[in-house]
Every structure is written in C-alpha cells, then in structure tokens.
C-alpha cells in the first residue's frame, strides 16, 4: 500500500514538473517527488516484514523481535537533509529571480 502511495507521489511530482511553469510550484513538485522517493526508500526496508519494528536499540534487547532493515532509514535521513538543502537553494534562487524579473512564472521571464 505504502509502496503504491510512494509511486503515486513520485508520479504526481513528475506531473507537477511537467506541467508547472511557476518557480515555486516547481520547487513544490520537486519536494513532492522527493517525499515520494523517501517513502519509497522506507518501504524497501519493510517489504517482506510487515510486523517488524523500527530498528531502535532499546534497553531490553529481545532476540525474538524482528527489526526492519536499518540502512534505508539511515539513507532517508540523509536524503531528507539533502532535499532540504536543495529546496533552500531553490527558494533563494526563486527570490533572486523575482528580484530580477518581478514574476515567478518562467514563461514571463522570457527566453534569453
């Protein structure tokens, strides 16, 4: 279920990228895409193990508990951080573009 949701988000993100000309909306679409990706990464760890719990080391170590693959979760953390960084730069560029062209619409900025 989660997998489909993530794929749906990715597709929505791509659709947004394909259709939008507004800088802010493009950044939003990118974010949607990234969220979809992140969820996808998480689901990778869960795939076969529906009842597994998060891989957090607690005080009581129980051998019987099934832990999901911790790696994707670590990856997601990194990916989120990177995504934030990109979004930040994107937004600052958007501001610069607004300063220069007084619009957020790429079409209205004109080619060259």
């Amino acid at each position: 279920m989660l997998l489909y949701a993530s794929v749906l988000l990715i597709v929505i993100g791509l659709y947004g990228l394909l259709t939008n000309r507004n800088v802010i909306k493009i950044i939003l679409s990118l974010n949607v895409l990234e969220i979809g990706l992140n969820i996808f990464i998480i689901t990778v760890g869960f795939l076969d193990l529906e009842e597994a719990i998060a891989p957090i080391i607690t005080l009581q170590q129980r051998a019987s508990v099934i832990v999901v693959d911790p790696l994707p979760q670590a990856l997601v953390l990194t990916a989120i951080v990177i995504g934030v960084g990109t979004t930040a730069i994107g937004l600052s560029l958007a501001k610069k573009m607004y300063d220069k062209y007084h619009t957020f619409n790429l079409d209205e900025m004109g080619e060259e």
Partner: peptide
C-alpha cells in the same frame, strides 16, 4: 538565476 534554477531542478 534562471539558468541556475534550471540547473538545480
């Protein structure tokens, strides 16, 4: 910024 934005996206 426009080109850079394109690059970024």
């Amino acid at each position: 910024p426009k080109s850079t934005f394109n690059y970024l996206v």
